[in-house]
Design a protein around this nucleic acid. Structure first.
Lengths: 192, 192
DNA sequence: ACCTGAACACCGTTCAAGT
DNA sequence: ACCTGAACACCGTTCAAGT
């Protein structure tokens, strides 16, 4: 059985979704593919590189075309929701994407669509970048917590006893809080 | 050699700071203490529980008394800085604290001082909680990235070539952006 | 180019038994 | 109460060799 890089990433996503990040080991993935573990090192230099490729794949699957016919803040909210959806679409997706990005791995940047959207508000590059990274960190933190709780309650225990804390409503609230802050800053003078 | 829980946590913090989170294994820690790995399981039910205790210890070491003689937003900034300092004080502290908190482990809550501070602004409990968690997620994300870059540049490579991205100035900028957003919301009517 | 087979140096955790 | 000794079921990674 001969595989290409993409085939292996695809299968890794399946293993991730079915068994979780903790059980996505090189040996397990190899077994799933009917390969020796060492065969994976022909395609990826390390497990880190494999996980970065998987995270990139999840981000690509969640990609949406940017809507430029809409106010900048609506576009920011849309970009935030698109990222959240991509993180929630597969088991442990939030943790994986957040970790890969925190370590600076990964070729697909979740920051770019946010910067693009904020930039349309005409606040200037410095504030656009600061606002976008603030939003990105908020999204990573919020959705990671959201998914952790989702999984804890799906696996377990007493059920709806624990306080929710992180859900879609509080996501929107946090996001709008940051946008309210961004709006306080005067737009930089426009060129045209 | 007979140890108590606290002794083991203390030594774990040393191992963390010297060798990093990846090398803080149960076997390594046991060797450092002159114990068999199994001995640790007399004190901690699992590695997760040990790591939660270490994260709690880091948060406790960074604790500051809340200053109530100062405007609410100054208190929020102070609480944010205290948390950031606690995360940066030891190697991989940011990643450890953020992970432990994301999984809902840990008895020391970094959220409480933030909620306390925002609450003094009189915005009501719902907004106070939303603002505090938004800030918490921002702090976790920002400082994790900050520490990852610090470590990458200390270990390595060409030096100051890479863009900084996350530093003390952008931390303050992000924090003030969120505070600007919070200020937009009318304080709830006060009791006195 | 892609894979096998075997090995190296590790892990977290359990459990009977010791003091 | 706290620890030893031994075992179980795993890891990521390397490397010579095969096709």
């Amino acid at each position: 059985m001969r595989y290409r890089r993409g085939d292996i990433v695809e299968r890794a996503v399946e293993v991730l979704d079915r068994y979780g990040l903790a059980d996505l080991s090189m040996r397990r993935l190899a077994a799933e593919l009917g390969l020796q573990p060492s065969a994976l090192y022909h395609h990826f230099a390390s497990k880190q590189e494999l996980l970065a490729a998987v995270a990139d794949d999840l981000l690509e699957r969640g990609r949406r075309p940017s809507d430029d016919d809409v106010p900048w803040d609506v576009a920011v909210v849309a970009a935030g929701h698109a990222l959240r959806d991509a993180m929630l679409a597969y088991r442990d997706g939030a943790e994986l994407i957040a970790t890969v990005q925190a370590f600076g791995l990964g070729r697909v940047s979740p920051l770019v669509p946010l910067v693009r959207a904020v930039d349309r508000g005409g606040f200037g590059p410095e504030l656009a970048r600061a606002a976008a990274t603030t939003i990105l960190h908020f999204v990573f933190g919020h959705v990671s917590e959201e998914q952790a709780h989702l999984q804890a309650s799906s696996v377990g225990a007493i059920g709806d006893d624990a306080p929710v804390g992180a859900d879609a409503a509080s996501f929107d609230l946090g996001l709008s809080l940051i946008l309210d802050g961004v709006r306080q800053h005067r737009p930089a003078p426009s060129e045209h």
